[in-house]
Each structure stands twice: as structure tokens, then as C-alpha cells.
Design a binder for these strands. Structure first.
Lengths: 246, 246
DNA sequence: CGCATGGTTGAGGCTCATCAACGCCCGTGG
DNA sequence: CCACGGGCGTTGATGAGCCTCAACCATGCG
């Protein structure tokens, strides 16, 4: 079931934000066989403990990785937008150690591991880009870890906003000074190790200081320099190819 | 400058804890050219922002990854023991986004990226094992992230102890119910997002409840089941080949 | 012996969690 | 068309968990 509507272009765009692709490589990516689905929040894509035979490319909407603890405690590990393949690592590490779920209505394309193996065997350049993508992922974990361990609630939110803006900009999903952020304050809290109540209070404070406004699923960054400074944000961990002027 | 004393056996042992190696692969790893050094705490191995041309294999002692923030805030991202190559990712991601430092007097072997590239080009099986190692690293980040975000101080310490015990057991560094842990309470705090004072208090509490004792650089696990339960510890994220009975 | 490093303990305070109530928006069904 | 309900955002009150500061102790080393 090939994609007739070029939905795989979001993947090409993402990979090109990481490293250059040849025309052949672009072509090979775009003709990957996929199964497309539209998913609603509340229905997980893959679960902790699974051994999936496909990986999941996000085509639209927002998806997150998360882990659960007792007493309903949830930790969101990352957010994903169009172009991301959050469970790419299951190609090399069969057993899932986290779950994957849509946070909004999302379209995803399932790509068989077999297809990916064939692709990377044929195009070592693509294999290298995908490896880089996995390692950039790890760099993002390091940044989040630093935030959870040593940043205040205010700094954590500021840092997350910087990251999400730049990542979306890199794949053409952001406008000047604004980008989509259609997730609940609960989800933000679960990502930042905070309660939804406290997220709300910090957002109010940020709004008051005129740095950032989050409303109706849109993030508006009014003062990028101040925001980046408050977050001690250094974009190098995203390892983006392009500059990121705002 | 080859290793005359087979110091690379620690690497073989580590890689075999991840996946099987053929005799040729073992031989190839053991004959990697390396430069060995002994390093003292306080002198970083690699720094945030560097673009190293070598990766660093730990031969003995304890090494950590860390990131710094303003006001002296430090976040330790991982601990490493003999057999680990903490900055292996610099082979694919040239720019370091964290620093690497010894926590005790440590012996390390520097392996040129060029040598590693040659090795993985010749032995795809080794390339696969190294990739798996990088991804297991990411799994550990996820476990730590969950701890920092959603676990109490007590649970975080318990979880860390479980991880460090099993990882050392996997490469033959642990005895029954005990293993080395020669790092300061300050370092533990910087890893767990806690102050050294609070680490001290929680350790006292654990000692009191008879679960775990940490003294003179040795961790003694008196009640593994209770400890693992308190931590909600699930070892699957370590993706070890062997079972891990205690 | 004196000093440095790291471990231990107490007092007080701040950040953030929890609980609870209320308002808004929007979809749904009578 | 309106009543109802659920999800989400907002606000207040209270308290737990952990931090900071500061002092003191134990150990090891020159």
C-alpha cells in the first residue's frame, strides 16, 4: 500500500534538516511502502513491552513518548511532530521500554522494519542520517534531563518552548515568532515533572512578563532573546543543519 | 601504540553483554590501537563544545557525563564503568553537547574515530552491537528522565542503585549483593537532581530500613526485592542478554 | 599536626504539590 | 433550542518535600 499522496515528503524534509540527501535517496524514501492511519488521543500507538515489527512516522498532529509509574504518575519523554519517527529505535532494539501515544488527532504512517532495513542496506547515506537522528534524540534527552534535574519550573517551560519552536521551524511548521502547540497543560506538566496547576501559574507569569503567550493551541514568542536567556537555551544540542534566526 | 596488556578485554566483555561476538570480531576489537591514560578527578576528558577525533573507553574507575548551568548548577547525565565508551556518539555527531569527567582516578583508552570506522566497516556485526549500545544508552536516559520527573528522592536513589548493581554485574564487576560505588554524595545528588544534604538524609533512611548500605565506596544491597519494589525497578530497559538473578 | 575533603545533623524557608472549587468552551442529545 | 456534561483552564488555601545555610565530625594525607 504505497503512499499515493506523497505523505512521505514530511520524512524527506525532516531528514534533510539533519543531513543532505541525494536525488536517489529522496526518491527511495518517498517510495517506501507505508500504511497510513488516523489516531485519536487515548489510543496508544505502541506500548511499553511490545515488540513491534513496524515503526511509526508522524504525518500530522502531535505524538509523545511516555512511561507510567504507579499511582497514575506519567512521565512524557518527548514530543513529536510531522516528520519524526519516534520509535525508530525498535528497528535495532526489539523490546519497547516506553509507550507512544497521540496527544491530538494524528495521522501516522507505519513503515515495516523490513522496508527500513532494505532501505539502509541499499543507501548507506540514509543509514547515516537515520543514525544521526537517533543520536540527536539522545541529545534531546540530555537537555531534558538537565532541565528536570536542575532548572526551575519557569526555566523548564522556557526551554521547552525554545526547543519546540526551533524543531518545528526546521521542518517548516513554524511561522515567524509563532508555532502550533496544541497540547494540554497536563501534558506539559507530565513532560516537565510539574503539576498541571503549577504549569498554569508559570504560564500566567510568562504571559505577564510579555515573553510568551500560549493560547488556543498556538505558542507566540514575543521576546525570543529574553526567553532563550531565561532558559539558558543553547540550540546546538538539536544539531540542526541550518541557522535558526527568529 | 597497541595495548600490550589486553586492556581492551573490558570492551569485549561489555560488547558481549549486549550481543554475541565471533572469534574474529573479538580479535579485531582486542587489536584496536589505543592510547591509554590515567586521569584524576577535576580534569575533564572531553568538554561541551569540543569536536573530538577520538572516543574514550573506560578501563577502570568511574566516569560521568555532565552538563553545567549557571550558578554552578551541574547535572550528571550518566555514570560509566570499565567497558563503557561514553562518548561513542561523537563518531556520528561531531559536536559534543556535554562534558565527560572522571569521578575517581580512572584509566581510559582513547580510540581514534578512524579506527572505529574501519572496524565497523569491516565487521557489520560489531557495528550492530555498537548501535545497540548507543540505543541502550538512550533507554537509560528515559529511565532517568522518568525518575527525575516523577519519582521521589527515595525512589530515585533506590532505582539508581538497582541500575548500577545490574550494570556492573553484567560486566563482572559486582559480587553477590554488593558492588563498588566510589562516588561522593554530591555526585549522586547531581545525578538525581538533589542536594548532597538530602542524599545524605535519604541514605540514612535506607540504612535504617535495612535495604541498602553505602559506605567506603561499596554499595551493599541487603534486600534486593524490597529495593527493586521501592524503586519500581524494571530491568528490561538495560536490554541485557543474560538473566539477572541476585 | 594541620588541613582538605567529604559525611552528618539541625533550623528555617521556598518551590511546588495537592485538594477543591469554579468558569469556559463545545459537543451532544432531548 | 436549551440543558447537560465533560474536558480543560484558572484560582485559592494549605502543606509536603526538598533546599540552603551553617556548623560540626570523621578520615586521610602531606
Amino acid at each position: 500500500m504505497s503512499s499515493s499522496d506523497h505523505s512521505l515528503r514530511v520524512l524527506v524534509r525532516k531528514l534533510e534538516s539533519i543531513g543532505p540527501l541525494s536525488a536517489e535517496e529522496r526518491q527511495a524514501v518517498e517510495s517506501l511502502p507505508v500504511k497510513t492511519r488516523v489516531l485519536e488521543p487515548g489510543h496508544d500507538i505502541v506500548n511499553d513491552g511490545d515488540q513491534p515489527s513496524h515503526s511509526c512516522l508522524v504525518l500530522s498532529g502531535w505524538v509523545c513518548r511516555y512511561k507510567m509509574l504507579s499511582l497514575g504518575r506519567r512521565q512524557v519523554l518527548s514530543f513529536h511532530v510531522a516528520g519524526d519517527i519516534p520509535d525508530l529505535q525498535s528497528l535495532h532494539l526489539p523490546l519497547m521500554d516506553y509507550s507512544l501515544a497521540p496527544l491530538t488527532r494524528s495521522a501516522v504512517a507505519f513503515i515495516a522494519h523490513e522496508s527500513l532495513r532494505e532501505l539502509t542496506a541499499t543507501f548507506p547515506g540514509l543509514a547515516a542520517v537515520l543514525t544521526r537522528d537517533l543520536l540527536i534524540d539522545a541529545a534531546a534527552y540530555r537537555a531534558w534531563l538537565t532541565g528536570l534535574g536542575r532548572r526551575s519550573a519557569y526555566e523548564r517551560l522556557a526551554h521547552l518552548f525554545c526547543e519546540l519552536y526551533l524543531r518545528q521551524q526546521a521542518v517548516g511548521l513554524a511561522e515567524a515568532h509563532r508555532c502550533p502547540l496544541p497540547i494540554t497543560q497536563m501534558d506539559l506538566g507530565d513532560a516537565l515533572g510539574l503539576s498541571n496547576v503549577h504549569v498554569n501559574r508559570v504560564l500566567k507569569e510568562m504571559r505577564g512578563s510579555g515573553l510568551v503567550t500560549l493560547r488556543a493551541g498556538t505558542l507566540v514568542i514575543e521576546k525570543w532573546p529574553e526567553l532563550a536567556q531565561a532558559a539558558e537555551f543553547d540550540p546546538s544540542y538539536l544539531h540542526l543543519r541550518s541557522g535558526h534566526a527568529v
